[in-house]
Design a protein around this nucleic acid. Structure first.
Lengths: 237, 237
DNA sequence: CGAGCCGTTGAGGGGATTCAAGCTCAGTGG
DNA sequence: CCACTGAGCTTGAATCCCCTCAACGGCTCG
């Protein structure tokens, strides 16, 4: 895990320059702050880069920071009462990760990078400090909480029901939303199983079927290209 | 839907008396407020009672209030991209419902009473007004958001995976948490199907099997009694 | 009393799992 | 250089669980 401290990149507005220039500013947590607000953020935010399969935080751990995703995809995993690993949610650019830290609570699941990941680490103390003064920040926080809830509910509705083929199609549709023009992160078969509640063999068979149908093209290095138009058609019946 | 306005129950502390006396105060949204804080809440909170199967709010609707559950169980429903109704989450005493209203957003799902339901209706304006002054209220709000997220993730992990019998056992375990000493709300078979992604026939067969095993006893009027000890044992293998 | 809703149970078929073998490919070391 | 190894993926065959289609019973209500 490589850490890039963001302070002192500019002597006058140390963090401000970085956050203003941030590629995800409009969708990021501090997008709600004006320049003056950003000016108060000094050396508190750090940019992290994680390789794929690295863990951002662990279930049961008590953290003191939340993260916003600048680029990449990450997954939230838990172990069920019966000892099976299940992936319960994904997050991508602009999403907030590890909100439990704001409540002084242990993280509810493992957060693991799917792709190489860039995140901003925001200490709880900073949020608490700014939160008191800036109502927009609280609003933005609540909006992100709601987005996560929505994602989790949509997961139940779309990815956890119906036959295997449709579940996989729905998963590819979600992954497409994180990628660019059809280029997606392609999970391992065992991971597909953990997301859709299938065995890895069934996942493999379904992937093969979509490849035969020309809907999906596997690329080297855990990537793939999906035919967005064909995907929509396949999903609609 | 019967509405009981809560103002003027006491001339000096109109709402305060009610909220202080509230049976769920410790776990309710305004439990974080002290007496002085409660004193500022005048005629703004109303107590509602809904019969079973009544809708508290509808998907797509823009509301201007959130609700806290005082008693009863309610469910959140959505229609999938393929037109099937799915139940994605449950809420019970102390849970917050309709948070989308705080963000000026449309509700993300239907909220329907499972049992006769008592809720407090809290206007958005009240939360906005108090939220600026009282940081504890914001904390309490965030905690409830996180609880909902946790519930949704647990739903994915526990109720949406494994064989039908285990899913039903997991569902009964959750329902037991809402009820008292084994007395639970017993969903219709079709509703069990909508929660666990099963057909109503399969749900019925599994219910029958649990009855034969002495784990579950059906009572008149959509109620049932579960053997908590036997349930734990059955779940653990 | 018939209509409709809800629940139960049966028979048959289909889709997912299980068990198993073989494949590709990258890394390792003889 | 190439066999050796192990991880990930694919495919086949048999089994099993759940779905589909169907019939029927209890109950409420017009």
């Amino acid at each position: 895990m490589s850490v890039v401290p963001l302070y002192r990149l500019d002597s006058r507005h140390p963090q401000a320059q970085v956050c203003l220039a941030c590629e995800v500013r409009r969708s990021a947590l501090f997008g709600a702050l004006d320049e003056e607000g950003l000016d108060r953020i000094h050396a508190h935010i750090a940019s992290l880069e994680l390789p794929a399969d690295a863990r951002l935080h662990a279930l049961g751990e008590r953290g003191d920071a939340v993260y916003t995703v600048r680029s990449g995809v990450l997954r939230f995993e838990r172990v069920t009462a019966h000892g099976e690993r299940r992936i319960v949610r994904l997050a991508g650019r602009g999403d907030l990760v590890g909100q439990e830290a704001l409540l002084h609570r242990a993280y509810a699941d493992d957060a693991v990078a799917c792709t190489p990941l860039q995140v901003c680490r925001i200490p709880r103390s900073l949020v608490e400090h700014l939160g008191g003064q800036r109502a927009e920040l609280m609003r933005e926080l609540m909006a992100r909480w709601q987005r996560a809830l929505d994602e989790a509910e949509a997961w139940v509705a779309e990815l956890a029901s119906g036959p295997a083929r449709r579940r996989l199609l729905a998963l590819l549709a979600r992954l497409s939303a994180y990628g660019e023009d059809g280029l997606i992160w392609m999970p391992r078969r065992e991971e597909i199983g953990a997301m859709l509640d299938l065995t890895l063999e069934t996942a493999s068979r379904q992937v093969s079927a979509l490849r035969r149908d020309g809907l999906l093209e596997l690329l080297p290095g855990r990537a793939a290209r999906v035919d967005a138009a064909a995907l929509r058609i396949a999903l609609s019946r």
